[in-house]
Amino acid sequence: MSNERESIVTIDISNIQTANQLHLLLKEKLEFPDFYGENWDAITGLISMPDKLVLIGWLEFEKNLPSDAKTMKEFLYLHNEEYPDWKCEYLFN
């Protein structure tokens, strides 16, 4: 895991059609370690987040995968509560 993170990461999720596609994209763009389990429970304190995460295409993503969109928001906010040292600002554009 890299100790030096970009302070702002922007990810276009507008064309995501499956949860698997989303997790693979998050793993790539957020430089998650190889042991990342590609599921919501794998987003733990072992995974650091950038200072700011900008998600482009949020409305399209919510339409395509409403359950995953809801779960994603819950886990991202929970991550901030559980790991305040790695707090991330989320922008759902």
Rank of each mutant, 00 (worst) to 15 (best):
K73T: 05
L59S: 14
N20K: 15
A19P: 08
Y83K: 00
F61P: 00
Q21T: 01
F32C: 08
E74W: 09
I13Q: 08
P84M: 08
M72I: 02
S48N: 03
N93I: 05
G57E: 09
E60S: 13
I8L: 11
L53Y: 07
F75Q: 08
E89D: 15
S48K: 06
A69E: 04
H23S: 02
T10G: 02
F32Y: 12
W40Y: 13
N3G: 13
L78E: 09
P66V: 00
I13M: 11
K52V: 10
S2L: 13
L78M: 05
G57S: 10
W40N: 06
W40M: 12
T10V: 09
S14P: 10
S48D: 07
T18W: 01
H79P: 03
L22G: 11
N80F: 06
Y83D: 03
L59P: 09
K87H: 12
D12C: 02
E28Y: 07
M49R: 07
F35T: 14
W86C: 11
T10D: 01
K73A: 03
I43E: 08
L78T: 06
D85V: 04
L22R: 05
E31N: 15
E74R: 14
L65Y: 01
S2D: 04
E6M: 15
K63G: 05
K27C: 08
Y77N: 08
P50Y: 07
L25P: 00
E28I: 03
P33K: 14
